[in-house]
Amino acid sequence: MDFLNAIVALANYVLIPGITYGSQLAIGALGVTLVYGILRFSNFAHGDTMAFGTMITILATWWLQSMGVSLGPLPTALLALPIGILGCIVLVLVIDRSVYRFYREQKAKPVILVIVSMGVMFVMNGIIRFIIGPDDQSFSDGPRFIISARDFKTMTGLDEGLGIRTTQVITVVTAIIVVALLFWFLNKTRSGKSMRAYSDNEDLALLSGINPERVVMLTWIIVAALATIAGTLYGLDKSFKPFTYFQLLLPIFASAVVGGIGSPLGAIAGGFVIAFSEVTITYAWKKVLVYLMPDSLEPSGLVQLMSTDYKFAVSFVILLIVLLFKPTGLFKGQSI
């Protein structure tokens, strides 16, 4: 019985939050990795692209709620998501046309594009703060739990409860759908193949008649969609605050690099590696160990390796280790 309790506690505090956070990071990192693969720069504005898409989704959610529309048990934000994606696509394409294209034609060095993306980050951040303000916004509605911890306890008779939140299930399901769609697109369709060809070898792709502007446009559309979905899922699960989204940049970059930047599969793996490391290292293990250890060995402290405030340090250290020992990442991304 103690063993079961330990497993349930582990699932409740580590596995489920880890999977959820990992899915969010994975979708975010896919966006970074696609920009890197096709446009060949690290997009510092990605966190704010996520925040922008989420903001449009939130505004649309509020509008739908004021009209009395709802999805029943699901959060209204899912219905508003396509509007958010559209809004984000429009913004990103406008920025690409007005800002990035110039440097593409100049064949500017990647680091110049990174600096330009810093400027874009400022502007997006400003737009977001201007429209929705810098404060926390909560936009999740519908029932919070699919199984609440108390129900689980009465159902199974265990001491530990296992609570599964609606947003966690939605995150995982959406992530699976999104990833499946993306891989189908990249591997099976003509446009997806042209994107991969362009990423592999730009000159050869140009020779075989692939229109670079079209590839770039497709990339931005996909990146905007991914960013909005990742941002909305994160916002539903936690809450929306522009500054938090900016800070997500570090774990997202870490995920993309750990997996191998430029490799979509790597981005997903990296997302989960980073998420699980963050959760396991900042989790207070006492609750699990109490069930597993004999009474005499019971830990006195919280058995927390690091306080939660150091979660950035975790993604950072993993990033450094990978960069030092395996610079191409776990999945042989582009060695840069």
């Binding site: 720069f41 690290s42 510092f44 990647p110 680091v111 990174v114 800070q247 940049l249 570090l250 970059f253 870490a254 690099v257 405030d309 150091y310 950035f312 340090a313 993604s315 950072f316 990033l319 450094l320 960069l323 030092l324 610079p327 840069i336």
Partner: peptide, 25 residues
């Protein structure tokens, strides 16, 4: 020592990280 041997984008990400860690500390 750790990050300068790598290319410029990585130095950017590494320094971004160290700044957050210093503030967290």
């Amino acid at each position: 020592k750790a990050a300068l041997g790598l290319r410029s984008d990585y130095l950017a990400i590494a320094t971004l990280g160290i700044a957050e860690i210093v503030i967290a500390m």
